[in-house]
Deep mutational scan, measured.
Amino acid sequence: KVTYHVPNEEFARKLYKKAVDANLNVEIRVENGQFIIHIE
């Protein structure tokens, strides 16, 4: 399980798409202006 803290929405979207394309379980949320992405 990996967690990324991404300040940039564009990068967060790319990361999310890559994980989904790889059939990984992804959860994304915004906290204090940062995008928190959990990948399992």
Results as ranks from 00 to 15, higher is better:
K14H: 09
R13A: 07
V26K: 00
L24T: 01
V20T: 09
E9C: 14
V6Q: 02
K18G: 07
E9R: 04
Y4M: 09
V26S: 01
I39D: 00
L24M: 07
K1A: 12
H5D: 03
E40C: 08
N25H: 13
A22T: 02
K18T: 08
T3C: 15
N32G: 08
F35I: 07
I36H: 04
Y16W: 10
V26Q: 00
F35N: 00
V2N: 06
A22F: 09
R13P: 02
A19D: 01
V2I: 12
D21G: 07
N23K: 10
E31S: 07
R29A: 05
I36E: 03
L24W: 08
T3D: 06
R29C: 08
V30W: 13
F11S: 13
K17P: 01
A22W: 11
N25E: 07
K18A: 14
E9S: 04
Y4I: 14
A22N: 08
V20D: 01
Y16M: 05
K1Q: 09
R13M: 14
E27C: 08
E10V: 05
E31T: 05
E10S: 07
R29T: 10
I37V: 12
N25R: 13
Y16N: 01
F11A: 15
Q34G: 07
I28F: 10
V6F: 13
E9D: 04
K14D: 12
A19K: 02
E27R: 06
Y16R: 02
T3S: 07
G33Y: 05
K18H: 10
L15H: 03
H38K: 09
L15K: 03
N25M: 12
I39H: 01
P7A: 14
Q34E: 11
K18L: 14
R13D: 07
I37L: 08
E31K: 05
H38L: 14
V30G: 02
I39V: 08
A19P: 02
E10N: 04
E10K: 06
A12Y: 07
H5T: 13
L15A: 03
I36M: 05
E9L: 10
N23G: 15
V2W: 14
I36D: 00
R29M: 09
E9Y: 11
L24R: 03
E40I: 13
H5N: 07
I36Y: 12
E9P: 04
E27T: 14
V26Y: 01
Y4K: 01
E31R: 05
V2H: 11
I39Q: 00
N8T: 09
K17N: 09
I28Y: 04
A12H: 03
G33I: 05
L15I: 11
G33D: 04
N32I: 09
K18W: 15
P7S: 15
A19R: 02
V6S: 10
V20F: 07
G33A: 03
A12I: 09
I28Q: 01
N23D: 05
I36T: 08
N32P: 02
R29S: 08
N25W: 13
I28K: 00
N23H: 10
E40F: 15
K17D: 08
D21A: 13
V6I: 11
N32W: 07
I28G: 00
E40D: 11
P7C: 09
E10M: 04
V20M: 11
G33M: 04
A22G: 06
K14A: 13
V20G: 02
E40T: 13
K18D: 11
F35K: 00
A12G: 02
F35W: 15
V30D: 02
I36P: 00
T3I: 12
G33K: 02
P7Y: 15
F11V: 14
E31A: 07
L15R: 01
I36A: 03
Y4T: 03
V26C: 04
F11M: 14
V26G: 01
N23I: 12
V2K: 10
I28C: 14
E9A: 09
I39E: 00
V2F: 12
I37Q: 00
P7Q: 14
Y16T: 02
V2L: 10
I36G: 01
F11K: 06
Y16K: 02
K17H: 06
N8M: 08
R29Q: 08
A22L: 13
A12N: 03
Q34N: 10
K14R: 11
E31P: 01
V30P: 01
K17V: 06
